[in-house]
């Protein structure tokens, strides 16, 4: 999964972002626009206010940027603090006419972590919006800022047969090469192992019960 992020302060706007290996190919990349609204009421009654718009271009790469519509006013700030004191929820919803997704986080967390906010959008390979998640990374700016992070499907794992066969063939070739060099007889090459094996056998054949050990100690937590 390749995700790139960029910080976008509420005042400015910027582009970004993600590319993935096997996304669909489009001649003209479709563009999606979603409205973003937020709500942070101490009494938990939703009252969503426009926050901005997200534009996303879906092509070989997914580009997206966040367009804020309004400043975060002092009044809003007070409301957010009030909400945090009541252990209320800071909600975000992203929608257009065909889809609506939303998520929430604790207002307290947002304030404690310095008001930085990352909107993680989950976008399907066909460019549809699946979900949103609010991250609150720790920041020391103490100033409201929103960042966009676009996340699409990870490449699916496939059995690595090609590499494995390649490796096997290399090994075979190496063995063939190695085989030519070493022309000693079997016994002259491995006499020490054979002697060791014989000694071990002689030691162990004395006790016939030794063979049926039930195999202990394989544990080890992971």
């Amino acid at each position: 999964m390749i995700t790139l992020t960029i910080f976008v302060s509420l005042l400015s706007c910027a582009t970004l972002i993600s590319s993935f290996d096997d996304g669909p190919y489009y001649d003209v990349p479709p563009t999606y626009v979603w409205d973003v609204e937020h709500s942070f009421e101490p009494n938990n009654v939703d009252s969503f206010k426009p926050k901005g718009k997200i534009n996303v271009k879906v092509g070989q790469k997914i580009h997206g940027f966040f367009n804020p519509v309004d400043k975060f006013s002092d009044h809003d700030m007070k409301l957010l603090k009030k909400c945090a004191d009541a252990d209320g929820w800071y909600k975000i919803r992203v929608f257009n006419e065909s889809v609506q997704v939303f998520s929430q986080t604790r207002a307290r967390l947002l304030i404690e972590n310095g008001l930085a906010e990352v909107l993680k959008l989950k976008i399907s390979n066909s460019g549809r919006l699946n979900g949103v998640f609010i991250k609150t990374p720790r920041s020391s700016l103490n100033e409201f800022r929103t960042t966009l992070e676009i996340d699409s499907s990870a490449p699916a794992p496939v059995p690595d047969t090609h590499l494995y066969i390649q490796k096997m063939e290399e090994e075979k070739a190496q063995r063939a090469k190695g085989g030519e060099k070493d022309t000693r007889s079997f016994f002259s090459k491995y006499w020490m192992f054979i002697v060791a094996a014989v000694v071990v056998m002689m030691v162990f054949t004395n006790d016939p019960n030794q063979g049926q050990a039930a195999g202990g100690g394989g544990g080890g937590g992971k």
Partner: peptide, 17 residues
């Protein structure tokens, strides 16, 4: 999809074609 049941965060997703 791997989804967090508390926040709705899609932590991981992949597609096998």
């Amino acid at each position: 999809y791997l989804i967090d049941g508390v926040t709705g965060n899609v932590v991981y997703s992949t597609t096998h074609k």
